[in-house]
């Protein structure tokens, strides 16, 4: 049952892409780098190149982690909506097939300074 109601009821999604004035949401997460308390929400134009998204929008937000300087986008394992994925940095977000509210995750084994105690 999609909702318990007295009569048929259809909800209107609040976060549909058309509400973002030409932009879309991309969720990004540098896995196991929990200094950043949660995956991040980036709101950008779908025509933006992926390398711009990563270098100019995401990377500056990661400065506080001692490993961020060594972070390379082509080294590590990517997941897109929990499926293995290879990014094309020279192509746009849309051309990479990254839809609205898509979750990207990057795992970088070896870059684990803040896990020294584990």
């Amino acid at each position: 049952m999609p909702v318990t109601s007295t009569k048929p009821y259809v909800g209107i999604p609040r976060d549909h892409v058309t509400n973002f004035c030409g932009k879309q949401i991309v969720f990004v997460c540098w896995d196991q780098h929990l200094l950043f308390a949660a995956p991040m929400m980036l709101v950008v134009e779908p025509t933006m190149l992926l390398k711009e998204l990563f270098d100019q929008v995401w990377k500056p937000l990661l400065q506080a982690d001692p490993d961020s300087a060594a972070l390379k986008w082509d080294q590590g394992q990517w997941l897109k909506s929990n499926q293995p994925w290879t990014p094309n940095l020279e192509a746009s977000i849309a051309a990479n097939g990254i839809g609205h509210k898509e979750q990207l995750r990057l795992k970088t084994p070896g870059l684990d300074t803040l896990w020294a105690a584990v």
Binding site: M1, V3, S5, V10, G11, P13, R14
Partner: peptide, 10 residues
Amino acid sequence: EPEKYVQAWL
């Protein structure tokens, strides 16, 4: 109850 929560104002 998806129809309820799709409307959430986040």
